[in-house]
């Protein structure tokens, strides 16, 4: 087996640009946050500390800018020397790293662990069950319809039905406990498998039919090789290269659905952390109020990019093992 360096370096390049985009967005978000903070804080300073407000106003007048703009620049100077979004982004993300170290109850390691374990187990089960169903019901139109049906079904949909039936009606899952029941992890995994296995099954179901019509399969059949061996040793091996690409495409869908399931079952994964970074409440006098935790949000985003990158590279290596052409092209 050869390491597919070209493919891996391409992925590295793509994710480096993704990181750059993240830094720019972090900078823009940081600038907006500083602007909001400056305008809110100035109102407070004006009311409680007029002397300080006057000093700020004098300095702003000397520079020929408004007091809001002066205070905004003052706040930004703590994170960045210049006011371009890239520099602000880097400065803010450094602060996010400090936030990560200084916030004791964040437990980000546990969140990453929960996320990786559930997504990995789900992914393995999705591929295995998808391949099994696909090979069992070759060319089935019903598998196609079920697969298309679950495309439009979010994970919370199935999760909610699971909770209503298993927890509320049948009392099989404990409710209202402070500690998460292990059954929650199992149900979350089942939800992901149930939603995503059908697409793999549909692909395998169609491709296996095409592959079974190949002349070499007829030759194997003529030799008396049992059908199961033909299916698992030849058909599956040949469709596995394209299957690995589909699995990669499914990864981002599974990740999105995991986020919702994580929030629904309260598993404490990256979805729960992301939810914590945006708190939305109905405040009767105002309407909808959203509190945004900048640092937590970007910490989670960066971890997600790293996970996506690790998974892409893993898939590229697997493709190298499965497809001899990849190794040949590297030479």
């Amino acid at each position: 087996m050869k390491v597919p360096w070209r493919g891996l370096s391409k992925i590295m390049g793509i994710y480096l640009v993704a990181v750059l985009v993240t830094i720019i967005i972090a900078g823009a978000a940081g600038a907006k946050l500083a602007k909001n903070y400056a305008s809110e804080a100035l109102g407070y300073i004006k009311a409680t500390n007029p002397e300080f407000y006057n000093t700020l106003k004098e300095n702003a007048t000397k520079m020929g800018i408004s007091v809001e703009e002066y205070y905004y620049r003052l706040i930004l100077s703590r994170v960045s020397k210049s006011d371009n979004v890239l520099s602000i982004g880097i400065g803010m993300l450094k602060k996010s790293r400090e936030y990560l170290h200084n916030t004791p109850n964040l437990n980000i390691g546990e969140a990453v662990k929960v996320t990786i374990i559930i997504i990995s187990i789900s992914l393995i089960l999705i591929v295995l069950s998808g391949v099994y169903i696909g090979l069992k019901f070759r060319g089935s139109k019903s598998i196609d319809i079920i697969s298309r049906f679950f495309v439009g079904i979010p994970s919370w949909w199935l999760g909610t039905i699971f909770i209503i039936i298993l927890a509320v009606k049948l009392d099989l899952i404990p409710l209202g406990n402070a500690k998460i029941s292990p059954s929650y992890y199992i149900f979350a995994t089942l939800v992901l498998v149930f939603i995503h296995a059908w697409e793999i099954a549909s692909y395998v179901s169609h491709e296996s039919i095409k592959e079974l019509k190949q002349p070499y399969i007829n030759a194997e059949k003529a030799k008396g090789v049992p059908e199961n061996i033909i299916l698992w040793r030849h058909v599956l091996k040949n469709i596995s290269i394209a299957l690995s690409s589909i699995t990669f495409q499914k990864f981002s869908d599974i990740f999105i659905d995991f986020i919702a399931v994580d929030v629904l079952f309260g598993l404490g994964g990256l979805g729960s952390l992301l939810k914590r970074s945006f708190i939305r409440e109905i405040d009767p006098p105002y309407g909808i109020v959203v509190q945004f935790n900048y640092h937590l949000s970007f910490v989670v985003t960066f971890i997600m990019i790293l996970l996506f990158m690790a998974f892409s590279m893993g898939i590229e290596v697997i493709k190298g093992i499965l497809d001899p052409r990849v190794s040949t092209n590297e030479r």
């Binding site: 967005i25 981002s252 999105i256 992301l274 990019i305």
Partner: peptide, 13 residues
């Protein structure tokens, strides 16, 4: 690059 970005947190931010 676009398909490599994690959609969810970016959409939120």
């Amino acid at each position: 690059v676009l398909t490599a970005l994690p959609v969810f947190p970016f959409l939120l931010i």
